[in-house]
Lab assay of single mutants.
Amino acid sequence: MDALKSAGRALIRSPSLAKQSWGGGGRHRKLPENWTDTRETLLEGMLFSLKYLGMTLVEQPKGEELSAAAIKRIVATAKASGKKLQKVTLKVSPRGIILTDNLTNQLIENVSIYRISYCTADKMHDKVFAYIAQSQHNQSLECHAFLCTKRKMAQAVTLTVAQAFKVAFEFWQVSKEEKEKRDKASQEGGDVLGARQDCTPPLKSLVATGNLLDLEETAKAPLSTVSANTTNMDEVPRPQALSGSSVVWELDDGLDEAFSRLAQSRTNPQVLDTGLTAQDMHYAQCLSPVDWDKPDSSGTEQDDLFSF
């Protein structure tokens, strides 16, 4: 819950932080000083300027060897085509990944977070970031790969997607708890209302004896509580940590079903599988986004697919 609360507080303090972009060759504004600060901008989305290598189908939802083989196929196909790589912007948030063309600003792909089953910074092609997700059109699994400016960037994108998945799962947990509370309150309110109706004398007997209905007592009954809980029953509950912020979080049926399955089948359902080692994760978390744009010590960066 700490990640969720800190993310909400950060967004309320400075929503404009989320509009910064990394990996864009110096076009961005001043960047936060450390990885923790940038992680807090996830709610509205972190932007990464990358190059799209392509996509291939895979048979399993996750796995280092599986993704490595898929990336190898994608890279080989991209090299064989001889075409310049498409420059894209990857927007990562707890909602998922939005992929747009840098030149036309046209939407290429919009992947809900619950469809993503794996992401990684490839070991062999260490400047490549990739994720595996279920197609929104059918049940097939797709591996999408992107060329980053350097290994640090690939690791940073991988960690960002993993963190977005974690925050999304926490949102789901909060929403589920809130819905259970509202359902319980609604049920209790309905029981109270039913009890009051059972003990209320029939209207005919009131008229016969000349008694008047006590409207004041009726007004004191917990009807307002019942209506408050039943009027918006169809509205999706939102985490309290975000009250007053500009973010509107809505959970669709697909996300609810997917996270429910994860909660039942996995020990740590909030953790998205990645190909990063503990050492890689520690190294990337210690980086400032400013470091992502620094040239690798191995030599001059080449803006070309064939540089790796």
Rank of each mutant, 00 (worst) to 15 (best):
D2S: 01
A3L: 10
A3T: 11
L4W: 06
K5E: 01
S6A: 13
R9C: 14
A10S: 14
I12F: 15
S14K: 08
S16G: 04
L17F: 11
L17D: 12
A18D: 11
S21V: 07
S21W: 08
G24R: 03
H28P: 15
N34M: 14
E40Q: 04
T41I: 11
L43R: 15
G45L: 09
L50P: 06
L50S: 12
Y52E: 07
L53G: 00
L53Y: 01
G54K: 00
M55F: 10
M55R: 10
T56S: 15
V58E: 01
V58T: 10
E59N: 06
E59R: 10
G63Y: 06
E65F: 12
S67H: 00
A70Q: 02
A70R: 01
I71W: 00
I71G: 00
I71Y: 01
I74G: 01
I74E: 01
A76V: 12
T77S: 07
A78V: 10
A78K: 00
A80W: 02
K83Q: 14
L85P: 03
L85H: 01
L85S: 00
Q86F: 10
Q86A: 13
K87L: 13
T89I: 09
K91Q: 10
S93P: 01
I97W: 01
I98Q: 08
I98M: 05
L99Q: 15
L99E: 01
D101I: 01
D101R: 14
L103E: 09
T104R: 06
N105H: 14
N105F: 14
N105L: 11
L107Q: 07
I108R: 12
I108H: 04
E109K: 07
E109S: 11
N110H: 06
N110W: 14
S112N: 03
Y114T: 02
Y114N: 04
T120Q: 05
A121I: 02
A121P: 00
A121E: 13
D122E: 00
K123G: 14
K127I: 00
I132F: 14
A133N: 09
Q134P: 07
S135C: 11
Q136G: 11
N138M: 14
A145P: 00
F146Q: 00
L147Q: 00
T149I: 14
K150D: 08
K152A: 10
A154W: 00
Q155L: 04
V157I: 00
T158V: 13
L159F: 15
T160M: 15
T160E: 08
A162P: 01
F165G: 02
K166C: 14
A168W: 02
E170T: 08
V174P: 05
S175W: 08
S175N: 04
E177V: 15
E178W: 14
K179T: 14
K179N: 07
K179P: 05
D183S: 13
K184G: 10
S186K: 02
S186I: 03
E188Y: 02
E188H: 04
G189C: 02
G189Q: 12
G190T: 05
G190Y: 02
L193M: 11
L193C: 06
G194M: 03
A195E: 10
R196S: 11
Q197V: 03
C199H: 08
P202L: 08
L203I: 15
G210I: 06
N211K: 14
E216V: 06
E216H: 12
E217R: 12
T218V: 05
T218C: 12
S224V: 04
V226R: 08
V226D: 09
S227W: 05
A228F: 08
A228V: 10
T231H: 07
T231V: 05
N232H: 13
D234Y: 14
E235S: 05
E235M: 04
P237A: 06
P237N: 10
R238H: 06
P239A: 14
P239W: 05
A241W: 11
A241L: 06
G244F: 07
S245T: 09
S246D: 11
S246R: 14
V248H: 06
W249T: 14
E250A: 15
L255Y: 04
D256G: 02
A258I: 05
A258L: 03
A258R: 06
S260Q: 09
R261L: 02
R261M: 12
A263M: 13
A263T: 10
S265K: 09
R266E: 06
T267Q: 09
P269W: 04
Q270A: 06
V271Y: 12
L272M: 13
L272C: 07
T274H: 12
G275R: 02
L276I: 03
L276Y: 08
A278G: 09
Q279L: 03
M281E: 05
H282G: 08
Y283A: 15
Q285V: 06
C286G: 13
C286H: 11
S288A: 15
V290M: 08
W292R: 12
W292C: 09
D296N: 11
S297L: 15
T300M: 12
E301D: 15
D303S: 06
F306V: 00
F306P: 01
